[in-house]
């Protein structure tokens, strides 16, 4: 598991992907942060809400190669015929992508630091907000990895996860419009409504449990999908 994670991390930082993503993320935050800084508003937590939205664009690029690339290059054979379990392979891939995400998040801490330097405070709310952001990232990355498991084409994997994340982003709004059973289901998969609890500065146990179990279930599904593909088409 750690072997695979380590290789993934190395691979991210050897290719331009990690740097491009980090650069893109920081750029986006800066664009949103600058006006607030000028207006002397020290509420970085609202930016965390925007950061969640940026993830919709960042995560698909981050995760598109995880499993699809192995399938395309034939390295999947090496992983599957080694004495490791499929769970460890998938979790290893997840840890690899998540580490890049952690580095990116770490860099975004520069902005709260700027606020502190200018006399602001790193509040408990902001800590809670960051915890929420880390959990949201985990759930998103799990979805991206799932998308990468269903195809050997990286671009298609990216598009699938992008669409899935968009749907989850608007699920809440859709739910109220649609109503009925579909509305209930949409509300149920709405990651955003959970995330918004954090960005309001509340550290809700229910939301923590929800996002964590969401991640685990999606990763479990990923393993099942790969298993199924082995049996069906080989």
């Amino acid at each position: 598991m750690w072997t695979i994670a380590k290789r993934e991390i190395g691979s991210y930082f050897k290719s331009p992907i990690a740097y491009v993503l980090i650069g893109l993320f920081v750029l986006l935050i800066s664009i949103f942060f600058w006006p607030r800084l000028q207006a002397s508003r020290g509420d970085f937590i609202t930016i965390l809400g925007d950061m969640g939205f940026f993830l919709i664009f960042i995560v698909p690029i981050l995760t598109m190669r995880t499993l699809a690339e192995d399938r395309k290059n034939g390295t999947e054979v090496l992983l599957m015929t080694s004495p490791t379990s499929l769970y460890k392979i998938v979790v290893g891939k997840f840890i690899g992508a998540y580490t890049v995400f952690l580095v990116t998040t770490g860099i975004s801490l520069i902005y709260p630091l700027i606020i502190i330097m200018m006399g602001g405070m790193f509040t408990i709310q902001l800590t809670g907000g960051y915890i929420g952001f880390l959990l949201l990232g985990a759930a998103f990355i799990a979805i991206g990895i799932l998308a990468s498991a269903v195809t050997e084409n990286q671009i298609i994997a990216a598009i699938i996860s992008f669409v899935a994340l968009i749907v989850m982003w608007v699920a809440d709004t859709l739910a109220t419009t649609v109503g009925g059973i579909v509305g209930v289901i949409l509300e149920w998969i709405s990651l955003i409504s959970r995330y918004q609890v954090f960005t309001k500065g509340i550290l809700g146990l229910a939301e923590v449990v929800y996002l964590l179990s969401f991640t685990i279930v999606i990763l479990f599904l990923t393993v099942r999908i790969i298993e199924r593909r082995r049996w069906v088409q080989g």
């Binding site: 290789r7 034939g74 992983l79 015929t81 004495p83």
Partner: peptide, 26 residues
């Protein structure tokens, strides 16, 4: 196992790759 298409990670050096395989195989 050596499959028909060798399962190589092309972004690694030979040593890095073999070390990875060593860890993978325990």
């Amino acid at each position: 196992y050596l499959p028909e298409a060798p399962p190589l990670y092309r972004d690694m050096t030979v040593t890095e790759y073999l070390r990875f395989v060593s860890s993978l195989k325990g």
